[in-house]
Design a protein around this nucleic acid. Structure first.
Lengths: 333, 333
DNA sequence: TTGTATGCGTTATCAG
DNA sequence: CTGATAACGCATACAA
């Protein structure tokens, strides 16, 4: 069942059938209808492979993410897929894990599949050392690279980021303003986004008139038990804190559990702020004040930008989106 | 940069190059090495479109799910993608939503993309009325259809399910055995899986020696606020219950919140069991006893079965996996 | 407005 | 073991 069969049955050439398929206006209404009728009758579907071969494009975008089961990334993927499909593009998904080598491997794989562009979802794709990002610049010579919540300068590289620095700065400052004196910053890695967050925290501490205390900046695994354990030992070792600002909601959940265990009242004895405004922030009692970093906006903006890029339009290289603090029961402001 | 370029540089025919690419044994070791060297040198990558055209296969599996941001589905997608890629297959993702029409539409779309098989993820794809599943039987004439946590009989349709009936039966019975007298069953829909769960609940009520009370089987939206509100009004309207068994963790979270609000002690005044053993079940205080329905096992089994199907092997039409009750703080057994 | 001929980069089928 | 050549199904430049 191919274009030839249709052309025979409709008594036209394959060129005409092709024109009909592609909406070329240079076809008389009569022939168009006849061809369409035949296509319907035969249940004809164009062969995407042959079409791709001619056009050298699949109308497919590669989506890379570290781990599609991470709630934030899962939500991002949802919006990206939806938005892309709305624009007539398919998405092929790659969960790359967090290792640089596998990230590179999957990027190569997607390139070999001749996707029309690649979207890197989440802040784990930009490394601190420029040479570790070189492979992205290299890939961007062939196709557009879109960063969702990451930023990198380069030809054909487009970034859409949430202003994490401002979000954390603002959150921390509000904690100090509400009377806290020792805000613990709990974070889980050193991705692009995490670095920006930490710098926001540092700036806030200074602007609140305090000295930076390294022991209040605590790195731990993105895991409930690990974080709880970390807070426990920290407290036992004599470090005092009356607020926890976390780089991830799950860490904030751990802080709530820690307060429960230690008999601390929330938010009086311990204020807590999470990050991402995920469903996790709503499962605890009290519910957690959390920074909404606007996944949906990040994703739709990314896809919109990409569509303009593919249409050869002129587009901004970097778009910044403003996060918002969702106030709930773990803070008293 | 194509197979002709390689053949020229290596002084062989394109047929030989093709053989090398495809690991055909009918090539002398010497030639193979030479060709591989040239390919490396020129940085040649086979054109997937042309290859697909010849093979009429993309080595790509379509994954359909209702909503990739649903935690359970997100996790499933993660395992499916990983497992498929390990077998050399790409996955193209489709979030179909919950409406029958869009489900059909996306299935057609994937078919037109000539994917090698389609995986339907989650229990939302099997409808109660046989005629609503007819389109799946129709599609299965062309390619294998794999169901993850759904079941349907038909040629080229393979199901991998978790025994939801047994899981809920067992959970409910344990609640009665631990002294509860009125177990409220809270559920969010009437998918295949939900129907099986309800039948498990009904069986348990009977086997525990109680009469079925319709007012104890409560349907509500899969949403924190909606569920909380539902429990509130239910209680105010005089319905008594001393345990909540939920078809989703999020509903169990709502039950915990309800107990907090109503001043009920968990598990003494109200025992709670959730379903899915998701991270949500670990965010509350106390943490929620939840049925682990083995996402990973479901997904790896599905992919393994699919691989056998694609290799024309003989495979079971239906595989059942046994769930497990993860006991935590919301129950006293 | 329509048809013809050719290219796209492979794989597969022969014949040697 | 190797090579020539015909599919594969479509898009498109060019001719009519």
């Amino acid at each position: 069942m191919n274009i030839y069969d249709v052309s025979k049955h409709a008594h036209v050439s394959i060129a005409t059938v092709s024109r009909v398929i592609n909406g070329n206006p240079n076809v008389s209404e009569k022939t168009r209808k006849r061809v369409l009728a035949v296509m319907e009758e035969l249940g004809y579907t164009p062969n995407v492979f042959a079409r791709s071969l001619g056009l050298n494009s699949m109308k497919t975008i590669g989506i890379m993410c570290a781990d599609s089961s991470d709630p934030w990334l899962a939500e991002a993927i949802y919006y990206l897929e939806k938005e892309l499909r709305g624009n007539g593009y398919d998405s092929i998904l790659c969960c790359t894990g967090y290792l640089p080598e596998t990230k590179k491997k999957y990027l190569e794989l997607l390139r070999s599949k001749r996707v029309d562009a690649i979207i890197l979802t989440g802040s784990h794709y930009i490394e601190a050392k420029p040479k570790d990002n070189a492979y992205l610049l290299e890939a961007a010579k062939d196709l557009p690279i879109m960063l969702v919540n990451g930023s990198l300068n380069g030809e054909q590289i487009y970034s859409t980021v949430c202003d994490d620095h401002a979000a954390v700065y603002d959150a921390a400052l509000q904690l100090y303003r509400s009377g806290r004196t020792s805000v613990l910053y709990l974070y889980s890695g050193s991705s692009f986004s995490n670095l920006r967050k930490i710098s926001g925290y540092r700036a806030a501490v200074k602007d609140a008139g305090y000295a930076i205390r390294e022991e209040l900046m605590v790195l731990c695994h993105k895991d409930l038990d690990a974080a709880l354990e970390r807070l426990d030992t920290l407290s036992r070792s004599g470090v005092h804190f009356d607020a926890v600002l976390a780089s991830e909601d799950i860490l904030a959940v751990a802080a709530v559990k820690y307060a429960d265990k230690a008999g601390l009242k929330i938010p009086q004895d311990l204020s807590i702020i999470g990050y991402n405004n995920s469903i996790l922030s709503r499962c605890t009692t009290p519910e957690i004040t959390s920074v909404d970093n606007k996944v949906e906006a990040l994703c739709t903006t990314t896809v919109n930008t990409l569509m303009k890029v593919l249409e050869m339009g002129n587009v901004p290289t970097k778009t910044t989106i403003t996060p918002e603090l969702m106030k709930r029961g773990t803070t008293d402001f």
